[in-house]
């Protein structure tokens, strides 16, 4: 019985990349969230709960619109950065395969002794298409 090869060890480089991504994400969110939360400190300048000073149009747009737009911008930037840093593109059936030849296992060039390519009488096998 063969055993599954899933869940094999993750390489240190990719672990470092994941850790860096996490740190940058937390850092980015902190940079965005801190000024927003700090804005409440200036609440005294806009009156009291019982007698609030009216917000200007710019302030209103800044608070209610800027927060949402800023959130989206951060999400878009993170997604774009993450996709640029990601590995090989996933194979999609029907699209051209634009990679060099890939060998898994022993390449014929690495096997000792030069072997000429020849037909193999009696060879078997099967084919499939998708």
């Amino acid at each position: 019985m063969l055993h599954s090869s899933r869940g094999s060890g993750v390489r240190p480089a990719s672990r470092r990349g994941t850790a860096l991504r996490r740190v940058l994400t937390v850092g980015g969110l902190t940079l965005f969230a801190l000024p927003v939360f700090a804005a409440t400190a200036s609440a005294g300048e806009i009156g009291t709960v019982y007698d609030p000073d009216p917000l200007t149009a710019l302030q209103t747009w800044g608070i209610y619109g800027g927060t949402i737009v800023g959130g989206f911008l951060i999400a878009i930037l993170l997604a774009a950065w993450s996709s640029r840093k990601s590995g090989p593109t996933r194979y999609r059936p029907g699209q051209p395969w634009e990679h060099d030849e890939v060998w898994i296992g022993t390449k014929p060039e690495q096997i000792e002794g030069e072997r000429a390519q020849k037909a193999v009488p009696g060879a078997g096998g099967a084919s499939g298409n998708w």
Binding site: H99, W103, I104, I111, A116
Partner: peptide
Amino acid sequence: GVRLGSVRGDVRLAAERILSTL
């Protein structure tokens, strides 16, 4: 052995030729 890449001509013959070198 696993080989990924394009193949020209007869697939079966090409596979056998590569197989003979393994």
